[in-house]
């Protein structure tokens, strides 16, 4: 018998080395988030120290040149645009998912789903560009100036619709056939089955989709930057131009220095805070639902 050992590491030692290498890689991957938060805080600290949090809500306006740092109008901008988009995209997304699962003939449903997937993959800069050259002129004809909260809402709606539709579709697919057969055996109509059995059973997927869509809308930058007009003001109507927190960062980061730059990192922190609050409250709610 010839049993030779050519490797200089024994197999067990090699396994140990492998695990430590993998842990190293995973450590790096896990630390990125910490790094991001740490850098945001580090860069935001000067502004927080010299200005304090309160100035971001009490200053008369956002004029970094004059050292005014009022962030509220942009927070309202983000909030309104997001809310509008979610309100529009949720029913559209749900109806799209129902269409795929329940109404469309198979080939159409398949094509439609592929469409939605593609829609979800289109870069935000392309949506922004299209909004700028097609949508904004149309709105401007309806009610000048054109670049507006409305344009932002429409673009964001299209952008988050795929997320909501696809997740709703996936959870509709998981509704057990027995429920549906059981309801049909009771002589219920299609809509009654959908409303009474299918939608409740698919609620959690729909909910997740809406949360993810909301997160995406809050964080979206390029598309809103291109169609919303970027005037720092609290919008009074749908046709007013607005500026969101994200657009503000993208617009001013290139030339911002000192406190101004630091203030932009503060708004970055605010954004991350909004997303984290959203995700954790969603988790809290869905947990309550499971045990309640």
């Amino acid at each position: 018998m010839i049993w030779s050992r050519s490797t200089f590491l024994s197999p067990s030692n090699r396994d140990r080395l492998l695990v430590w290498t993998l842990r190293g890689a995973a450590g790096i991957a896990g630390l990125i988030l910490l790094f991001i938060v740490a850098f945001l805080i580090l860069e935001a600290l000067p502004a927080l120290r010299t200005l304090g949090l309160i100035r971001f809500v009490t200053d008369p306006s956002w004029h970094p040149g004059e050292e005014f740092y009022l962030m509220l109008p942009m927070m309202w901008g983000t909030l309104f645009a997001t809310l509008g988009a979610v309100v529009l995209a949720t029913p559209l997304g749900l109806l799209s998912a129902l269409f795929c699962r329940w109404y469309a003939p198979k080939p159409i449903a398949r094509t439609y789903r592929r469409f939605i997937e593609l829609l979800g993959g289109i870069p935000s800069v392309v949506y922004g560009f299209w909004g700028l050259v097609v949508l904004v002129p149309m709105i401007s004809r309806l009610h000048p100036p054109g670049p507006s909260l409305l344009a932002g809402i429409v673009i964001l709606t299209i952008m988050i619709l795929p997320t909501i539709a696809l997740l709703a579709d996936a959870s509709l697919a998981k509704v057990p056939q027995e429920y549906i057969r059981g309801a049909a055996a009771l002589g219920l109509g299609r809509w009654a089955i959908i409303r009474g059995v299918v939608i409740p059973a698919a609620k959690s997927g729909l909910f997740t989709g809406v949360i993810l869509g909301t997160g995406r809308a809050i964080g979206e930058t390029m598309a809103v930057l291109m169609v919303c007009g970027n005037v720092v003001q609290t919008p009074q109507s749908l046709f007013d131009p607005i500026r969101t927190l994200t657009a503000n960062i993208a617009l001013e980061m290139a030339y911002a220095l000192g406190d101004h730059r630091s203030a932009l990192f503060v708004s970055g922190l605010v954004l991350v805070g909004m997303i984290l609050t959203l995700v954790s409250s969603a988790e809290w709610i869905s947990r309550g639902r499971i045990y309640g």
Partner: peptide, 28 residues
């Protein structure tokens, strides 16, 4: 615990807006 922490961190990372990555990339 290690696995859970990593997973959690990645889940949050997936939700971080791209502009924040831009800020971080610029600063770091």
């Amino acid at each position: 615990l290690f696995g859970r922490l990593i997973r959690r961190s990645l889940d949050v990372l997936a939700g971080v807006p791209s502009i924040i990555f831009g800020l971080f990339g610029n600063a770091f």
